[in-house]
Nucleic acid binder design. Structure first.
Length: 360
DNA sequence: CTGATTTGACCGGT
DNA sequence: ACCGGTCAAATCAG
């Protein structure tokens, strides 16, 4: 077991250290005379380091030996398909269905869960899709007691083909119809992120994203802009993490909605422990956030948790953009490396989440 | 034809 | 029994 680790561990550590290093540099630069360029470079460095590190962390989860561990939040692997054929379309229809489903539903409850709020731009909100970089398939809609608007249920398009159990729910807010509360559950184990950071790939994603296909060239620019926003956003992001698992570092890979994000709340549904941790979070977002499809269709409403004041209300929408906001579906995604995001839940002070001494 | 959405039925938890 | 979540047949869209 350890053997398999050491190389990864080294890389991991070095990436994290590097990230921290970048961060420190950035700090220096911020306090002194900041050049935007340097900042960007450093930011890039940080992002990329953390991404790599997190990828390593994530990907070593579903390894053969440690199957049940699945470090990332206990993704429910299907007993039949975990090792076996990816084409397990049929297994759910099998006779043992019910038992399996029960199992799955239990596991599902243990999946990490986080909510964020997306505000759509009233002007073009109706047209502006909410592209979080993943491909979702709607599987249900329900009227929820006490809620004005129905709740929509989505699951990863590649659930069957790639055994990816990520789901999300989209609920339009009662008070502010321009706000959508999106609850993500489970992490993507598929490698089907849309536009991704290092490679400007996956134009299909953007095309399906209708309106915004004046990109390609915009892409880079927008990426930069997004990155800046990202930086700001990160600075202000506050996540409540409930029920964290015993581990000191819990990472929550998630796709970050590229649209406007209000506050984001993560809770981990854990069976046993009831540890309440309330800490600021360092989210390492990548591609979805940088998705070119978004900054135009919606704008940021960065309220921090403290900042409770709801942003200015805008005129309500006429029709329900729920679908728009949360579907992304008909696309054919190129199988790109899954760069989803992870949140490192570690107490963070301005200095950074990781202490070098943490590592062996 | 294939794949996505719709929508009523069904199921499990409370 | 109620409610939220999911399934799956029917329907729609490309």
């Amino acid at each position: 077991m350890d053997n398999g680790w050491s190389y990864e561990q080294k890389t991991l550590i070095s990436e994290l250290i590097q990230g921290m290093d970048f961060a420190k540099q950035l700090r220096v630069h911020l306090t002194s005379a900041p050049s935007t360029e340097t900042r960007d470079v450093l930011m890039q460095g940080i992002l990329s380091s953390y991404e790599k590190a997190l990828l390593i962390l994530k990907w070593r989860g579903p390894m053969p030996q440690s199957q049940p561990v699945v470090a990332v939040s206990g993704i429910p692997e299907s007993p039949l398909s975990v090792n076996g054929s990816p084409r397990s379309d049929d297994f759910e229809k099998g006779i043992g269905d019910h038992l399996q489903n029960r199992d799955i539903s239990k596991k599902r409850k243990m999946m990490p869960k986080w909510t964020d709020q997306v505000r759509i731009n009233p002007e073009n909100g109706l047209e502006g899709p909410h592209d979080d970089g993943y491909s979702w398939r709607k599987y249900g809609q329900k009227d929820i007691l006490g809620a004005t608007y129905p709740r929509s249920y989505y699951r990863c398009t590649y659930r069957n083909t790639q055994n990816c159990w990520a789901t999300k729910q989209v609920q339009r807010s009662d008070e502010d119809p321009t706000v959508f509360e999106i609850t993500y559950r489970g992490t993507h184990t598929c490698g089907n992120l849309g536009p991704s950071v290092p490679a400007p790939v996956s134009p299909e994603k953007q095309e399906q994203t209708q309106i915004n296909h004046q990109n390609n060239q915009h892409q880079q620019l927008q990426q930069q802009q997004s990155q800046e926003m990202l930086a700001k956003f990160r600075a202000g992001l506050r996540v409540d993490t409930n029920d964290l698992d015993s581990n000191e570092i819990a990472y929550y890979p998630f796709s970050f909605p590229s649209a406007s994000v209000g506050f984001l709340q993560i809770e981990h549904c854990n069976s046993s422990t009831l540890t309440n941790v309330n800490s600021s979070l360092f989210g390492s977002f990548s591609s979805p956030f940088l998705s070119p499809s978004t900054p135009e269709s919606s704008y940021f409403s960065m309220h921090q948790a403290n900042d409770s004041g709801q942003a200015h209300n805008v005129q309500p929408l006429e029709s329900d953009p729920t679908e728009i906001i949360s579907t992304n579906t008909s696309s054919t995604n190129s199988p790109i490396v899954d760069l989803d995001f992870s949140l490192d839940q570690v107490g963070i002070d301005p200095n950074f989440p990781f202490d070098t001494s943490f590592f062996p």
